[in-house]
Design a protein around this nucleic acid. Sequence first.
DNA 1: AGATAATCGAGACGGTACGTCTTGTCTTAGT
DNA 2: ACTAAGACAAGACGTACCGTCTCGATTATCT
Lengths: 192, 192, 192, 192
Amino acid sequence: MPASAGVRRRGAVRSEEARIAVLGATGRLFATQGYDHLTIEGIAAEAGVSKQTIYRWWSSKSAVVADALIEDKLLPDHPVVPDTGDIRADLIAWMQSLIDLVAQPGNDGLVRSLVAAACESPDIGTRLNDALGITATVSTRIEAAVAAGQLPADLPVMEFVRALVGGFVLHSLERSEPAPDIAERLVRALLH
Amino acid sequence: MPASAGVRRRGAVRSEEARIAVLGATGRLFATQGYDHLTIEGIAAEAGVSKQTIYRWWSSKSAVVADALIEDKLLPDHPVVPDTGDIRADLIAWMQSLIDLVAQPGNDGLVRSLVAAACESPDIGTRLNDALGITATVSTRIEAAVAAGQLPADLPVMEFVRALVGGFVLHSLERSEPAPDIAERLVRALLH
Amino acid sequence: MPASAGVRRRGAVRSEEARIAVLGATGRLFATQGYDHLTIEGIAAEAGVSKQTIYRWWSSKSAVVADALIEDKLLPDHPVVPDTGDIRADLIAWMQSLIDLVAQPGNDGLVRSLVAAACESPDIGTRLNDALGITATVSTRIEAAVAAGQLPADLPVMEFVRALVGGFVLHSLERSEPAPDIAERLVRALLH
Amino acid sequence: MPASAGVRRRGAVRSEEARIAVLGATGRLFATQGYDHLTIEGIAAEAGVSKQTIYRWWSSKSAVVADALIEDKLLPDHPVVPDTGDIRADLIAWMQSLIDLVAQPGNDGLVRSLVAAACESPDIGTRLNDALGITATVSTRIEAAVAAGQLPADLPVMEFVRALVGGFVLHSLERSEPAPDIAERLVRALLH
DNA sequence: AGATAATCGAGACGGTACGTCTTGTCTTAGT
DNA sequence: ACTAAGACAAGACGTACCGTCTCGATTATCT
């Protein structure tokens, strides 16, 4: 009968070094090449790790990406939602900074890559909202507005956030011209 | 003297038969295998057409898919938006039928496939809204509601629609449990 | 009134211009790219002629090449065999000039290309000897030597020539170092 | 302590099984289809091996063929040169058996295929003489004849052999009628 | 003058094979 | 035990030519 606590199993332990190298390499390549052109072999080479080491711990490319997403290797810092008391102005400001972020050179295609990854993997899909910084910042702000009576008490916050982010995502997929007032219009579509 | 306009160039003319076979095959395979597992070789084989014939007229897999999308080979019939005078009830009904549509066996992953295609191709991205039947049916209904005074006159209709569909898309990507009231909550998030 | 014999058939007549363009293009491409890399499409493009025009008059690549060979489009001028009375010296001199000819830059691979063509086509095979200028010049010289009593009367001239040229061809296929006395050794192997 | 010389590198070792399968398949296909119709894809399929495995170890079709040639996968057993003391009769007998060999059904085109391969590859060219069994058997017999005083002491043996085989090769390329005394005439051209 | 028949260019067509790339599994040696 | 290296079977990629075919224009002969 094994000891109740952690009977450290035999053999060498998983190399934390390798794990970090893989996730770091994934982040770097994701940023430079996008999700589609990411390859397991490329990650292994960039990380200085063997393919088998990746396959041993992750089941697929998207699993690696999902992990890298969790560990914040994939994205630049998310903008935070300001809180001036004016929920509409705050959301517009936040949406604008989100748009500015992905409009920066180098960040081109970042949303597309994330969405492509989400299409492949339920894991990433689930975390897509989080990845765009929503739960942590937007939901909180919305709930504050609800509490302040600026928004109806029965507002389905999660769906509200999804609609907001979804609108942004669809806009990104269209690669349309950067209409200057898109942030304002998008927020106004929800807050009328 | 020949007709003024087309100075018909020399050489054999493009085979309409081949064009149709390719788009048809694309539609069939897209439905059964999804966008990711679609291959040019597979389409060529299914269509009874040579690869070169595909590459001669389309530049990539996504270009073929975009064309098939235009020609309505990819999607089952879109639900139409009812018009009972109650904009909220109508949108909920429409959203519910959309959800039911993609919940049907065989249509699983259809939205994911479409979005994946949109990630690869600006063309498809642009048409994604149309593909989901929006411009044709939803926008019209929204505008009617605006005209009827049920929605503010300055509502940015396009963004409203994008938010609605975007919310639906993000929900689909999450593959979450089929919450029964999701249609209602999504619409209520926008119409509060 | 037309010539009595030829019941000139109806329709346009074969374009001599096209025929010449094809053979000329064949010669040019054969010289620069070798037989293997010669393509019908390449010849058609170089000649400014449609593929069908080639296929209408020639059955295959090798048929075109055979024709070009006959019309002397493929080869630089063949060296002639001198006649000083000394058959051995004459053959060595001729062989040496043959070796020098194919050693010139640009003529590299010419023999290989010819032999490759001969491997594909009986026609070209038959004419390979002729192509290397043998029948016309060497045989005559040999026969003169036979007549002069320098070579046995029952010498099988054709086989003698074949052995001489065959030795040269095998030497060319080996791409060995250009041994300076190879011409002399080759002739001495036959005239001992 | 490892052996001084080969510091065995890491990773899986080359599969001898695959190597043999490839050369065997090459031999089989070469015999049935000839060099021209040999394809890498065909070899891979016949050998039950992936194309990449072939491209990893050989640079081209001709390299595979050259290897198969070395390993004697391509040719039936070469006739040996008899030694009755009569060099002329022996050579005629050998040449006749060579001619008979390639005249057998199934061996048709074997010489042409070999020569075609030699045209493409210096390697094969170099080994073409060996492939026809010359160095091993003919040269030895010739040298014996030289030693016995039947042939001049300064005879360039290599060139003599090349002329003999070259004559045979040119004869084969011509696909002429099987003259019954061709072996005798060819040898007499050299031994007069 | 028309009809007929063969030419020519251009180029689309279904195919085969190329050589490269990636995937996911496996084997071997080093730590 | 776990890693790095790398070979392996499978199969898609996009390209190059193959040989056949269709198109419209042109040219020549026959009625």
